[in-house]
Design a protein around this nucleic acid. Structure first.
Length: 419
RNA sequence: GUGGGUGUAGCUCAGUUGGCAGAGCACCGGGUUGUGGCCCCGGUUGUCGUGGGUUCAAUUCCCAUCACUCACCCCA
């Protein structure tokens, strides 16, 4: 028996309906906010991810599915969506006719990590990006979309965390101050943080080890080091959120694992996913478009962990299961042939129709119809053939009415429409 | 990459001084010769994760391995 790859999973009927619902809600919301869908390839040249995400990040250093294809080109299964979307934005000069582009995509990403709750090697993201808008109102809009979507999906106990990572003008100053502080408490930090304080000091800020948290009690806050422009933008983001009625928490410890982020950064966090607290994360990356060879245009975006969202959505999966409008119960080959014909025609007319194609007792057929949750059952056997009239049973009221063969499809369509 | 827990029927799980493999649910059939849910009766389903070892005998003990899972790490 060949089993699926570690960290990958099948979305089976019963769960796929939930995924469809989530995707549908997301698409509808994006359309309302004037986003348009972009479909990007599942692989890119490895170089793209190295340059955008950052060589020193864990994603690039040890998590990417990278290999040489048969022509010898180094390619990588996408670990996130932003890099490809930016690449497409530049490559197709989407900015030329209109710099402002609101784009979204939904699809699988790949990172080779050790699987655990809320973390898979193939996972899906719902991704949104806004190009060409420097205003923090764009960031506020993204957060508003996130909280709206989560509310529609009945996600409870989530909290929006926001922070500013500063810009090339002010972040270096903060980084220095933090590095100095970390050097002075080096002996109290965990092993990982001692390694990180050199490679990526900002990451030390969100270490979960209690000792590190205590040692960092007096750590400098990025917010105190923001330059005037960053400060002003961060204030405007907050007032916009407040104006929209979005609850949020300023979290100076919120940092990102990807190098390209600047200024506004945010995360939707939950306690329902074990150790994985982030259901969605994003922020502004004003320098990335230019770094990847495009014009100097700002951008901001987010990614939702689809799998994580599906796990915490408060929707009743049972209520999402499809139920047949009509189940055809036929006895005998002649009646079955007739019923088969009706079933196909009714399905083509838009009715959800199910039918048993083998010979079964009526009792067995009724049981099947009941199990499937069929609203109505159409019975046809020798008696009905003789009278040229089938019997329609309402499974809930148990009421049964004869339906003449002549014009049966049209009659049923009219009777069951909208039910 | 590191550590803990768990692998027995389609599902949830029992199964200790080592002795031919179990329950509930589900499924199929019957009770009701053409009418579902409730009830009753009967029936099907297993490489006991895999490979070795110890033993007359291993689901049980030992070793290895794989998978799942949780946590670290990292992130969505």
């Amino acid at each position: 028996m060949i089993q699926l790859i570690r960290g990958f999973k099948d979305i089976l009927p019963g769960e796929s309906e939930l995924w469809q619902r989530i995707e549908g809600e997301a698409r509808a919301l994006f359309e309302n906010f004037a986003f348009r869908e972009i479909r990007i390839p599942i692989m890119e040249k490895t170089e793209l991810f190295k340059r955008s995400i950052g060589e020193e990040t864990d994603i690039v250093e040890k998590e990417m599915y990278t290999f040489a294809d048969r022509g010898g080109d180094l390619v990588t299964l996408r670990p996130e969506a932003t890099a490809s979307i930016v690449r497409a934005y530049i490559q197709h000069k989407l900015y030329a006719p209109e710099p402002v582009q609101r784009l979204y995509m939904i699809g699988p990403m790949f990172r080779r990590e050790r699987p655990q709750k809320g973390r898979y090697r193939q996972f899906s993201q719902i991704d949104a990006e806004i190009f060409g808008v420097a205003s923090p109102l764009a960031d506020a809009q993204l957060i508003f979309i996130l909280t709206t979507l989560f509310a529609r999906l009945r996600v409870e106990n989530v909290e929006a965390h926001v922070n500013s990572l500063g810009c090339p003008a002010c972040r270096p100053g903060f980084r220095e101050a933090l590095t100095r502080m970390l050097a002075s408490v080096g002996d109290r930090l965990c092993e990982d943080c001692n390694r990180r304080k050199a490679s990526n000091p900002l990451r030390v800020l969100d270490c979960k080890v209690p000792g590190c948290r205590a040692a960092l009690a007096g750590a400098p806050s990025i917010i105190d080091h923001l330059c005037a422009e960053c400060r002003r933008d961060f204030d405007e983001l907050q007032s916009a959120l407040t104006g929209l009625g979005v609850g949020y928490r300023v979290n100076p410890r919120l940092v990102r694992g990807l190098d390209y982020y600047t200024r506004a950064t945010f995360e939707i966090q939950t306690g329902a996913l074990g150790a994985q607290s982030a259901v969605a994360g994003g922020g502004r990356y004003d320098k990335l478009v230019k770094e990847l060879g495009g014009p100097d245009l700002p951008a901001t975006g987010f990614a939702i962990g689809f799998d994580r969202l599906a796990e915490i959505a408060g929707l009743d999966a049972g209520a999402l299961q499809p139920r047949p409008d009509l189940f055809l119960a036929a006895m005998g080959s002649a009646a079955r042939r007739l019923a088969f014909d009706w079933a196909c025609r009714l399905a083509r007319k838009g009715m959800r129709v199910e039918m048993e194609l083998g010979e079964k007792s009526l009792k067995s057929l009724m049981k099947t119809a009941d199990r499937l949750g069929a609203a109505h059952v159409l019975m046809v056997g020798d008696q009905e053939l003789a009278g040229q009239s089938a019997v329609l049973r309402n499974m809930q009221s148990k009421e049964q009415v004869p339906i003449p063969f002549d014009g049966l499809v049209e009659r049923l369509q009219a009777m069951l429409r909208g039910k």
